[in-house]
Amino acid sequence: MSVIQALDISLAVLVLAVAIWTIVSRDAFAAVVGYVAYGLLVSLVWVRLFAVDVALTEAAIGSGVTGVLLISAAVRLRGTEAAVAAEWPGAGSRVLAAALCMVVTAALAAVVLTMPDPGATLAPEAARHLAETELGNPVTAVLMAFRALDTLLEKVVLFLAVIGVWSLAADGNWGGIAGPRRATNRQGALAFLAQLLPPVGIVVAIHIVWIGANEPGGAFQGGAILAAMWMIVIMARLAEAPAIGERRLRLALVAGPAVFLAVGLMGFAVANAFLAYPAGLAKPLIVFVEVFMTLSIAVSLPMLVLGPPDRPSS
């Protein structure tokens, strides 16, 4: 067994062990922390699969922002576990369920083991048409050109998720400040960190968005890091969360899908198809769209993590 194989196997074991921990652990908080650790490990697996764009997304969203969301939820839901514990199905049911789940796993494992290598692929097709998109990163080309509709609709999903979260507000708080009220302690290490990290984070985020056209990276990963920086500032109480009635906030939230849609419609006129880019302008247009998408993502993610408005704006 070579070193790399040993490394892969131990990584897989570690991933599974942490995953099992998040399922069986008694304490919800411990399970959530396990899940954050799991996300970090999975992004290592993605690097091993040579899918760096995915690794970046997993690190930013899968473990980073999701982790924060779940950690604060676990803290707020402290003490609800005991009541729910009575609803556990009996041991027999659990064994049966585990057995049935194992059948599903076995079927998938059989599929994995019989998968041909090399397998079916669209990589040659993507390579052939990559030049037409003027991009260097094939994943960005798929997201922004070949399968642009899916990316556009995914941005609409994000937009709808924000509406969904907001719509849970109490009627009187509509238009108010997003998220629960926070204490006003501005002292301490947290505030220091919140002043230290964002400048670095903003530079890194811009870098990741910019290189996304040619190297791994892109709007979502960069936007997620920007979002994290904004959330740190809000959490450290250096800035107030925005009121959801604010015009600027709303425009920032729809800017990404709206600009994408507008550029797509422009394709009717200048490139004879919806979501097509005119030759010679593809890359600048894609970067243009990505800038607005980054903005929308950077604003949407904090809205999703903060939750519905909890008090009217003053």
Partner: peptide
Amino acid sequence: NFLLVLSLVVPIAGALLAFGVGG
């Protein structure tokens, strides 16, 4: 054939616009 595009773009654009304008 462009009507196929419009049939999904029109409601989505309407939703985005309604959100942006509000009130």
